[in-house]
Design a protein around this nucleic acid. Structure first.
Lengths: 214, 214, 214, 214
DNA sequence: TATGAATGAGTATTCATTCAT
DNA sequence: AATGAATGAATACTCATTCAT
């Protein structure tokens, strides 16, 4: 009896994240519209009605999916940046490492593709994501770039734009995996991809003395 | 009379591309599922039924949208690459310029976001896009990279992976514009973005003598 | 020129029956609702619009199909009955022979199945058919039966009901051919069927002296 | 509480046959194509969506309608034939009696008309009906005929064809009721019709000694 | 809490009908 | 007379959402 109650309690507490996990994988796989709530429920092992005990609507489920996954990682990265000492490029590497471990290698990897696909239909969620993930992530990269420029480690460039160029391949890596990546026959090698991205940045962002070589 | 017949003829010939243009903009804006064919029709100034005179189904319309826009540009870029003389980096710049003018500045700019969002739901179209756009585009960039490496202009790197890193920011620029780009308040500056991307590449791909500086 | 005009004239005169012939075969094959006017038109070698030059609506076409086919045969049978001398059973045979040659062996054979399938949806046409084909046909058979009973050739039975029993196998033969007949593997033999029907009637209708044997 | 649960259960169990009964009457009345599923649902007192909880498609509903009604009666008739002793004609009468009571006087009476009208459009269902109803019914009649011929009760005739002639008026009686029967003013008298059919058969099938009287 | 039967608004698709040429 | 492009009403079917149990 008691055990049952406990189990049930544990069950109940876990439900929302079980459901949003199920939703995430289906949303990522088929897109938001093409995902049926019945499938979400059955993947989570509950009935369709139960879903509505935890989420008011399909859109609310979408919001939960987006909000749950990535925020903690952003906060972690902010902490990493705050206590970083060493070169600015090393900071970029650390941020990327953490992101990769916490997002790229987990089920949350699908979120960027999902958010990109649905941003126009859910402006409110898009704004939330933009402000809490994108902006804060850009701020971290931006601070690292400015720090490096100030130290002469990186040459001077338009910071706001450089942020985007630096981030783009990382987002694209995940987006690709959940979209056209299905079509390619060869195995992709994300480790190598990220390493080459960093290599190019290492040279490409380098201090102004390099610039004269152009 | 004659004028009218001609007009009608011209009208009929123009219909398919009028319709696929309308469809493209709605698909990009709302996603495939969330786009109602009635809206596509009325944006093109015709009735729902007329759409079916030209496309067998919503999916057929989707295929047409994807297939029409980008193929010619790929072919142009292949021609550009074939007759190029000069540095390999200049070739990359030329390819990017043409792509930007023919895709980035036109209505076709939305295709990458659309394709990314729907690839999983339309594997057949995704494969078509992958083989005819992605593969051929990658081949062009890959050839330029290898040429540059052979000439000592670029240092040696894993070509297949570098291709992806080089292309990613360009795709991401378009994808962003049609997704989270809506959220940002500041005007984005794609010219500057592409220039910085090229700057970073110019330094980042440079021949091995630079590598010792790391 | 003149030839052309003549041809066109002949063409024009023939159109309605070409169209209703095409409609008949499609109606019979697929049913009224499932038949598309475009298919009717193209089977008749004209465009969809042309159909409307000759028939106001799909229902009008249906009426024409029903009305054209069988009426003349009814009239012929009335003439046959009027001038008949000989036994009453021979009259029944003659009527059946003519019906078989003019309906059963022609494209009109499909009309009974069509009329049966659609009677409820087109009460007006059904009534027309009932009054002009069914009633007049029943009257002919009824007269033959009464004549035979009066002569002692047939035993006394309820005429109105016997008419139906006598006619039923003949209608059913045609209806079957255009419905479940498709399913049977063996070739059906309508000649034999009709002969056995007549054989049974020959004995079954026989005068009252037989009745005592029951 | 318990009562309610039971009620609901009973409700759910009853739904499929409530729905197929509603469908049967509408299909018979208007034909398959002309019947709207919404009307079927509302005749059964449920909403359109509910129909799809029990039947996958309109065609599946059609199949169910056809399959449910008649099969049990065929089986009953097979049992009747198996245990019959007495004259072969009496067996025919028994079979007819049972058919009439279980089909002719029930809602299932409309099935033959429906099947005839739609056979061409649903070859699969038609085949099912042909094999499970028609063939088995014909086998029963055929066996009775052969038994009677062997006993000298009936004269020798081609059995396969005679089966059809014997069955036709019975099918036609039902088909008529749901088609052109609407048009006739006088009340039809199916009892009398069947009796006359049997009377004619009684004389018409009789053994060869009668034949000499022709 | 959890269920799943029931709902009905929403959309892709078809096709009879019209009409400018 | 003939065409066939265009129309839009009609309908099968889906699925988010509700609610009685």
């Amino acid at each position: 009896m008691l055990a049952d109650a406990t189990t049930r309690k544990r069950r109940k507490d876990a439900r929302p994240s079980e459901l949003s996990a199920a939703a995430l994988s289906l949303f990522v796989e088929k897109g938001f519209s093409a995902t049926r709530l019945e499938d979400v429920a059955s993947r989570a092992g509950v009935s369709k009605g139960t879903l509505y005990l935890y989420f008011d609507s399909k859109e609310a489920l979408f919001k939960a999916v987006i909000q749950e996954g990535i925020l903690p990682v952003v906060a972690e990265n902010e902490a990493i940046a705050a206590k970083h000492t060493g070169s600015s490029f090393e900071l970029l590497e650390k941020l990327l490492d953490n992101w990769w471990g916490k997002i790229g290698l987990t089920e949350f990897a699908g979120i960027p593709k999902l958010m990109v696909a649905e941003a126009r239909n859910f402006p409110e969620v898009a704004r939330f994501y933009y402000e809490n993930v994108i902006c804060r992530g850009r701020a971290l990269v931006g601070a690292a770039l400015e720090r490096g420029m100030a130290a002469g480690e990186f040459r001077r460039m338009d910071v706001e734009t450089t942020i985007d160029v630096v981030i783009a391949p990382i987002l694209m890596l995940l987006i690709w995996r959940f979209s056209l990546g299905c079509c390619q026959n060869s195995e992709s090698n994300p480790r190598l991809y990220l390493q080459i991205h960093l290599d190019i940045l290492r040279h490409g962002l380098r201090g102004s003395h390099s610039e004269s070589q152009v």
